[in-house]
């Protein structure tokens, strides 16, 4: 059981070949300002690299930013690899240019909430905090 007092650890990741890191960096800074421990992978990560970093860093959350349209491939792949690595307790969330219908389809595949353009960073922070609080009381 995770120590309920432990600081929330988040891996902010940029999967795939997409180089748009404005959102990832803004969310990483905002998470850090909110008191989370943040590890940022840098760009052009494969799902394998992300899962390996997530397991090694023992994170609670993997937050991915995808603006390339490859979200239907990348999010499920990271979820499956995490589960295979025994990290099924890790939340996979994120944001980017993702149509609402795709967000719903991904949710059905075990992905957490996904955030689109215009999101307030405070909403993303609140979502992660609530999710963790819920997990730790179970």
């Amino acid at each position: 059981m995770t120590d309920p007092q432990r600081r929330i650890r988040v891996l902010v990741a940029k999967p795939g070949l997409d180089g748009h890191d404005r959102g990832a960096k803004v969310i990483a800074s905002s998470f850090r300002d909110a008191g989370f421990e943040v590890i940022y992978t840098g760009l052009h990560q494969t799902p394998e690299m992300i899962v390996s970093a997530a397991v090694q860093e023992d994170v609670d959350v993997v937050a991915m930013s995808v603006l390339s349209g490859a979200h239907m491939t990348l999010f499920p792949r990271v979820r499956v690899l995490l589960d295979e690595a025994g990290a099924d307790h890790v939340l996979v969330t994120g944001g980017g240019i993702i149509p609402e219908s795709d967000m719903e389809a991904l949710e059905a595949l075990g992905i957490g909430r996904l955030f689109g353009p215009g999101t307030r960073t405070t909403d993303a922070i609140a979502y992660v905090k609530d999710w963790i609080a819920h997990q730790r009381t179970q």
Binding site: L17, D18, H44, S68, A70, T73
Partner: peptide, 17 residues
Amino acid sequence: FPTLMGYDSDHPRSLGE
């Protein structure tokens, strides 16, 4: 994105993109 990064369409890193 694969083209922008210098990968062919049939390279493993191009999957989904």
